[in-house]
């Protein structure tokens, strides 16, 4: 294996880190869904496997589409494709995703001709809420009062002791939605743009908690199911590949999965 090849494979894995499971707001690589990456010149094939055969095809589509998009952004990639393994609608999903066509073309009869925009928006909201809750809970644990939290600007938030990764995830969702732009803007609004108030904080946190409980339910199950489903495959195929060494993933992830 020569250097460039390994380097390119590492780039693909890093691109894949940016693809999230919409239902869970976790990276597909983190969830262990990506099985393999094959590179042939400017062409990349990503093998992808979900925790069950029954995972909803619309979620499967969103993830496969994300893979094609993110890998396709690498400057040396001319063609990115996904192989969805062992899924009830694998053929239909692959046919459109690998051809750059919309979801509605694969499932015209089952979705009233609509695409997934409303669903995307819904998951974007949930991801935002989950990330915001993580920051709010941390601030509360650090002793910030509801009044201080409600009045906090982005700049002030940056100077708290909230961990950078937690903060970065929230900042990305917040600015992505356009809810704050400048350091002097308020750090906490709801998805509709309404500023958080001190009195409203407990009720707001209760709402966010329910969103997290839902996401964790599926997250725990997905990881558990995936681990159970591919236990045998992992044992057969458990040799670390080069990329595992490159990315510091030795021992390989499937064995580290809960």
């Amino acid at each position: 294996m020569h250097g460039m090849c390994a380097e390119r494979e590492a780039e693909v894995w890093q691109a894949l880190d940016r693809v999230t499971d919409p239902e869970l707001d976790e990276a597909v690589t983190e969830m262990g869904f990506v099985e393999n990456v094959e590179i042939e010149g400017p062409s990349v094939l990503v093998s992808f496997r979900l925790p069950t055969y029954w995972c909803s095809p619309n979620f499967a589509f969103l993830m496969c589409e994300g893979i094609v998009r993110e890998v396709g952004r690498l400057p040396w990639v001319a063609r990115a494709r996904v192989r969805l393994e062992d899924h009830m609608h694998a053929e239909e999903v692959m046919a459109v995703v690998n051809d750059g066509r919309p979801f509605s073309e694969a499932f015209a009869g089952l979705c009233d001709g609509d695409d997934l925009d409303a669903l995307r928006e819904k998951f974007a909201e949930k991801a935002f809420q989950r990330r915001q809750e993580a920051v709010l809970l941390r601030l509360r644990a650090l002793g910030h009062s509801p009044e201080a939290i409600a009045a906090m600007t982005l700049r002030e938030l940056e100077f708290t002791e909230v961990e950078e990764d937690r903060l970065a995830r929230y900042r990305e969702a917040l600015t992505g939605r356009g809810l704050a732009k400048w350091p002097g803007d308020l750090a906490f609004r709801d998805w509709a743009g309404v500023a958080l108030t001190a009195e409203g904080l407990p009720a707001h946190l209760a709402t966010l908690r329910q969103v997290r409980l839902n996401m964790e339910f599926n997250g725990t199950l997905c990881q558990g199911l995936r681990g159970a489903r591919y236990k045998e495959a992992v044992e057969v195929d458990g040799e670390p590949t080069l990329v595992d060494f490159i990315l510091g993933r030795v021992p390989p992830r499937p064995q580290a999965a809960r």
Binding site: Y53, W54, M88, Q223, G224, L225, G227, A228, K231
Partner: peptide, 17 residues
């Protein structure tokens, strides 16, 4: 195959939790 996958999914739940 669907019947096979259905019981396997249940079995995965069983093992997972």
């Amino acid at each position: 195959i669907h019947g096979k996958q259905f019981i396997e999914c249940f079995y995965a739940y069983h093992n997972a939790l």
